[in-house]
Design a protein around this nucleic acid. Structure first.
Lengths: 233, 233
DNA sequence: ATACGGTCTGACTATATGGTCAACCATAAA
DNA sequence: TTTATGGTTGACCATATAGTCAGACCGTAT
């Protein structure tokens, strides 16, 4: 299977079909979760028959794994900004992270809820691969909460010790930063209902939010706001 | 079994059994969601038969509605602090809200994910009753984002105008406040995995978090931190 | 004792769903 | 044309699950 039967549109055999299935499956799985998704609906949406679906992906579980792994990486990818580039200063790191994270989520608004729901049902789905990347750096300190995010945590700790930052717990700070970015997407149905926002205005509000969150995040941390590259008025 | 058929403990016939069912159902629904929950599992956990379960609650939907309504109110209740008590000053309001919200969530860690997941699947489940209470106050302004949370929003706006607060968008600020409180519970499986925390240490971390979030929230908002009732060192 | 009525159950139905399979189709090589 | 092969399907199976029902059970009132 997946071989090269004919000339399908151009090169790939039916990678086209495979991709069509993955797109349909992602759509259905995100909305309904693993348990709520129906193979028939995925087949319909990919415009193929149910046996054809099983021909490409042996089982629902296998299909889900591919979809979930892709989405999990998509969800975690922006965190790489917090980890990589040791040379980047903390302010730049925070600005870049918040912007790219919120942008990613604005493109995939139901991604966080999907990921978190599946992880709650089956924590073993947490990809060891991605986890290891997050924890890369130092890995067996006596302070387990200091593991991973090494550069980020160190930058915060140094700033706190030098007095240029307010005293914050780095882990609690990271959770707050993530919460400010992610929560509005988790609560999307509530927000749209309470504020009576259509999708496009909701989306715009999320994009406006980037600058606001950056400001909040830096104000929590940095003592002298005038030293920022774009000081608040 | 377990039934003292008639005069059960006092008045109601077998409110005891009914409560036992609701407890079991809440447990199962919270973990698996409406779609993933099995009536058989609920029956088992309540230690009754499946037909008995249907005897007390006609259908899965009916049972779910009762569970969900209770949990939805439990989830929204702390928000009342933001709304009621017009006399309470903003600092006190924030301190009280954050503490009680995080405490509620620490008692029911999977509540937020449950509520949000069900709301995403079926936004119509948003209780009109609770929504109306949240929106109480002013209700048909030309600024729909200013509806509800009236007192809270006004207090922020006044502080901003008087110059004692940093300029913040009240709605974005509220979202940030909620995000800092709720997100760590949404991401509980990730956090426990990444930090390798057992449940009790996770819980303690959440309780420690109360003060940290309060500090962050006030630092985002209030210009002169020395005017706070408990100024940061 | 007997009848009544609320509580409960074994056995059942209807339906939905993941998955399978033998046969079929279309293309290209022989 | 024949044949081989990847791709596709209608029909089917096994299982799971929400929900039903006739009747059993049991304490109470008559």
């Amino acid at each position: 299977m997946t071989s090269i039967p004919k000339k399908n549109t151009d090169a790939a055999p039916d990678q086209q079909t495979e991709q069509k299935i993955l797109d349909a499956a992602r759509h259905v799985f995100r909305r309904a979760g693993f348990g709520g998704a129906r193979m028939q609906e995925i087949a319909d949406q990919a415009d193929i028959s149910k046996p054809a679906l099983h021909y490409y992906f042996r089982s629902k579980e296998k299909l889900f794994q591919q979809v979930f792994e892709t989405d999990f990486e998509r969800y975690m990818a922006p965190l790489g900004i917090i980890i990589r580039d040791p040379g980047m200063d903390l302010e730049k790191r925070i600005r870049t992270f918040v912007s790219s994270y919120i942008e990613t989520l604005a493109e995939h608004p139901i991604l966080p809820l999907f990921i978190m729901h599946e992880l709650a049902n089956n924590p073993d789905r947490i990809s060891e691969f991605v986890v290891n990347r997050l924890l890369s750096g130092n890995s067996d300190q006596e302070h387990p909460e200091r593991q991973g995010f090494g550069i980020f945590v160190n930058q915060i700790s140094e700033g706190v010790q030098s007095g240029s930052f307010h005293p914050v717990d780095p882990v609690q700070y990271i959770l707050s930063l993530l919460g400010m970015c992610v929560y509005p997407f988790i609560a999307r149905p509530m927000i749209k209902k309470l504020l009576q926002l259509p999708e496009d205005r909701y989306r715009q509000m999320m994009l406006d939010r980037r600058q606001e969150v950056i400001t909040y995040a830096l104000r929590i941390l940095v003592r002298d706001q005038n030293r920022l590259s774009h000081p608040a008025k």
